[in-house]
């Protein structure tokens, strides 16, 4: 099946169009963040800054609100990642090794939870958190994020557990290792790449989340980075485009970095040949 040269040319043209469509918005954010104040208000914007400037980053980082929102986001995301992984780990093991009915039920729940709009969940959650006195607290937010990240985390982790052959555990048991020792010395090390990938996923989902934060957090001192950015957009004129773009860029970096790492982990990290077949 050789492809004709003309078709090839067409394919590359199409590919170029995709590159522009997908990459251009990112390029524009980047360029806006590095433009100087004067350049941002000209009526003839250019694709690249005529003069590269760090002013917008300076303005953004001089703003204590930016720092505190990034800190809040970091606290919430790290706590979510750790707690989610800790409680998902035993459950994932049970799901992978246990009876299939449990699996069916949990997969069913994952699907059902996709269909229901958040508004149905958020109102009762709001009421529960209010009754617990957890509105406007990062603890309340973490609680929600853990539950929210759990179904998918669980699904990912149990996939990693299933990839570890049962025979390994059985062999260890035959050799006289206790159940706990088997888990600690055999299963856990093999599961490590999966645990890293999963906790990073939970981190990103908490770092990026907006809707629950919007409902639960109204105190500016407790707001996360997405909340701050959304408020920025609502209220500010074009003079502040630069700092807005700079803050957006800073906020995106952790997600992008982590996502880059997970991508590799997901592809290569699964089981680098401890048991073949």
């Amino acid at each position: 099946m050789r492809t004709r040269p003309l078709t090839r040319v067409g394919q590359y043209v199409a590919l170029a169009c995709y590159v522009v469509f997908l990459g251009f918005p990112l390029l524009w954010l980047f360029s806006t963040a590095f433009k100087s104040q004067q350049e941002l208000i000209t009526l003839h914007p250019t694709l690249f800054p005529r003069h590269w400037s760090l002013d917008s980053f300076r303005t953004a980082l001089d703003n204590t609100e930016v720092w505190s929102s990034l800190k809040n986001s970091l606290v919430v995301a790290v706590a979510t990642a750790i707690i989610t992984t800790l409680i998902a780990l035993p459950a994932a093991y049970a799901l992978a090794r246990g009876r299939s009915i449990v699996r069916t039920v949990s997969i069913g729940w994952i699907l059902v939870s996709q269909v229901f709009p958040f508004v149905l969940i958020v109102i009762p959650v709001f009421i529960v958190l209010r009754n617990l006195g957890l509105l406007n607290t990062l603890v309340g937010l973490v609680l929600i994020y853990v539950v929210w990240a759990l179904p998918f985390t669980l699904w990912m982790l149990q996939g990693y557990v299933t990839a570890i052959p049962r025979e390994l555990e059985e062999a260890a048991a035959t050799d006289g290792a206790s159940r706990f020792a088997t888990l600690r010395k055999i299963v856990f090390p093999l599961l490590m790449p999966g645990i890293v990938a999963t906790s990073m996923f939970a981190f990103i989902s908490a770092w990026n989340e907006f809707f629950f934060a919007l409902v639960i957090i109204t105190d500016p001192a407790k707001q996360t980075a997405p909340l701050l950015l959304a408020r920025y957009v609502g209220s500010e004129g074009s003079v502040n485009l630069g700092p807005l773009a700079a803050t957006a860029l800073i906020t995106t970096l952790p997600s992008l970095l982590i996502f880059g790492i997970i991508q590799r982990k997901l592809v290569a990290g699964l089981m680098s040949g401890s048991v073949k077949g």
């Binding site: 770092w207 989340e209 997405p226 950015l229 957009v233 957006a248 906020t251 997600s255 982590i258």
Partner: peptide, 9 residues
């Protein structure tokens, strides 16, 4: 990988 808020911005 991007927060929806940032995609919107």
């Amino acid at each position: 990988a991007m927060p929806s808020v940032i995609v919107a911005i």
